[in-house]
Amino acid sequence: MAPMQEEDWIDYLEGDIDAEIKMERDLILSYSQTDHKILRDYQELRALLVKELTIEMPNDTYFDSLQNKIMSEIHFTAIEVDRKECEPQDHILPWRVPKEPWKLKLTQK
């Protein structure tokens, strides 16, 4: 069996492997101290990053104000609708159904 690479253990940790491969790696972990240590290091690193690098977020008042700022600016903004972009296409989505999409352009106030 080819030796495990660090990348393999990162994939294992992220759950990004097939069930069969996971079983093989579980077996390796049962006898390989080196691989066990590598996996543990990455588990700890992940936990450290989450624990130590928390971001202090502003309070609700800040976000109310931010939302108001954004919506005030949007009030004076038009959706940029290009007729060519709105031509019927096979993958049309519900909101593209309007037959006269150019009418969606809001007039600036």
């Binding site: 977020m57 502003p58 976000f63 939302q67 919506m71 959706i79 909101w95 309007p98 969606l104 809001l106």
Partner: peptide, 27 residues
């Protein structure tokens, strides 16, 4: 999707719901 459709139909105020939902994550 309904919010997006409504905004595209002219209900601009509904975009505020998307702002409220995602502004914290985005910041």
């Amino acid at each position: 999707w309904q919010i997006i459709a409504d905004v595209l139909q002219g209900q601009t105020h509904r975009f505020g719901e998307l702002v409220g939902k995602y502004q914290r994550d985005l910041l």
